[in-house]
Design a protein around this nucleic acid. Structure first.
Length: 421
RNA sequence: GGCGGGUUGCCCGAGCGGCCAAUGGGAGGGGACUGUAAAUCCCCCGGCUCUGCCUUCGAAGGUUCAAAUCCUUCACCCGCCA
């Protein structure tokens, strides 16, 4: 099975330029790139889809380039949006570029002698360019008629307009491809399916300027089986940065995948063999309640992103906190380790203990005291796994397990720790 | 530059002087059932010092006992015309 067939099996191919030619080109190692724009301080699980495809190409012997969009991030991609982006200051974007550069690097191999990965920043070749050079050398090759017909632009024209800045985005991205074609002989660009227009514009530019030919391959934008956005939860996006999404929450995100999605997710994200995935699929169909596939997915991804140690810690924590057993029976070490993975609030022995409402709000499991009251009224507030339905309830020293810890829970799975010092 | 239409809570979208913290839908939250799933059903969904009070309906002023609703100015968006 060749790489393209494997990607197809995984559901990772949306569109490509002439597939026969692409398969042919892939018989020899080629150089390919994917761009990531710094639109936040961290990548999220959605970016992981395409990043892992890049990794698959490297594993198959090709030369991967990860491009961080220090330039394009300053401009803003109109693709997939129906309103203009708010521009971020260059200092902010610069900071994000650094963070994302590190994240991307973690998934690629830079030490292999044959096809080491490369990370580049498009600001390096865009910044020195003067406006006149840009217009004469690059802009001249673009037809506004074609630019207007791009989905990303026409959608915006219908939705209320687009600035000249974002309109120019496709030109910048095309120039990136041209530049990488020249510098690295890069002949394939990967991206989310919303990037098709931008990528193809790059192919045109390469053809016009260098009479060269290159390829495009896009990955479907991942949606859940119910059509909703992948990678968003009530708490917001699932980020790769552990300070933005804790490894605990990250693990739980995968473990809580819907049944209908889990096998697809394994195909998309996992580096297990087809056979291993089939085994998990069978187990899942036979006894979904066991959630073996969910667990395998959560373990593999958490290990990939946060490391094996973190995965073990986080899984043990979940086992302790979700265990059927009485929390009071846990020994202090187990409890302390489990709680270390949760958001924590510290209260002092000397101060007056807060009321139940105040405590719930303080830990952040609810957004406000009003919300805390609502949850209490609805019977969704738990202390050490026991429902507490009184707003006036105040913890006492005996509420603290091992004399130190209290476990707050809202609903089934929203937990926080309180430590007494 | 002229004329007309618009700006409502996380999103869409009603309301068009008091009965409005503001209809409805979606998203979200809790409960029941389950498997830390889905579907379904019930409840909730601005904040607080919570039988009351405070802050919201683009912004600032004004009219009125009373304004999201009327008037004025400003900002932005969308049309049509120049």
């Amino acid at each position: 099975m060749n790489l393209i067939e494997d990607l197809r099996w995984r559901g990772l191919i949306a569109q490509s330029t002439d597939e026969t030619a692409l398969i042919d080109a892939l018989k020899k190692p080629l150089t390919l790139y994917i761009g990531f724009d710094p639109t936040a301080a961290s990548l999220h699980v959605g970016s992981l889809v395409v990043l892992l495809v890049l990794r698959r190409f490297q594993l198959a012997g090709h030369n991967p380039i990860a491009l961080v969009g220090g330039a394009t991030g300053l401009v803003g991609d109109p693709s997939g949006r129906n309103d203009e982006r708010t521009l971020n200051s260059s200092e902010v974007v610069e900071g994000w570029v650094e963070g994302i550069r590190k994240q991307v690097a973690a998934f690629l191999d830079f030490d292999t002698p044959v096809n080491p990965a490369v990370v580049v920043n498009n600001l390096d070749w865009t910044a020195p360019l003067s406006a006149i050079e840009f217009l004469r050398d690059i802009g001249k090759h673009f037809s506004v008629n074609q630019m207007l017909s791009k989905e990303s632009v026409s959608a915006r024209l219908d939705a209320g307009g687009i600035s000249y800045t974002e309109f120019s985005y496709q030109v910048l991205q095309s120039y990136d491809f041209l530049e990488l074609y020249r510098r690295n002989n890069c002949t394939l660009q990967l991206g989310g399916s919303d990037q098709w227009g931008n990528i193809v514009a790059g192919l045109d530019l390469i053809r016009r300027v260098e009479s060269g030919s290159a390829h495009a391959l896009t990955v479907p934008l991942l949606a859940k089986s119910d059509g909703s956005k992948f990678g968003k939860t009530a708490g917001g996006s699932i980020w790769l940065d552990p300070t933005m999404t804790s490894p605990y929450a990250f693990f739980q995100f995968w473990l809580n995948s819907e049944d209908k999605d889990v096998v697809n997710f394994l195909k998309i994200f996992s580096f297990k063999s087809h056979e291993e995935i089939s085994v998990l699929e069978e187990s899942h169909n036979l006894n979904p309640g066991l959630r073996e596939a969910h667990r395998a997915l959560a373990q593999e991804l958490t290990t990939m992103v946060h490391g094996a140690d973190a995965t073990i810690r986080v899984e043990n924590a979940a086992r302790a906190l979700f265990g059927q057993g009485d929390l009071a029976e846990l020994d202090e070490t187990t409890l302390a380790n489990a709680l270390a993975e949760l958001p924590r609030t510290v209260i002092s022995k000397d101060q007056e203990f807060p009321t139940w409402v105040e405590l719930l709000a303080a830990t952040g499991v609810v957004d406000s005291k009003s919300a805390a009251r609502r949850v209490i009224k609805d019977g969704g507030a738990y202390l050490n796994n026991e429902k507490v339905a009184s707003e006036e309830f105040v913890l006492t020293k005996s509420s603290f397990l091992c004399g130190k810890y209290a476990v707050l829970r809202k609903g089934k799975r929203d937990l926080a720790a309180v430590e007494l010092i």
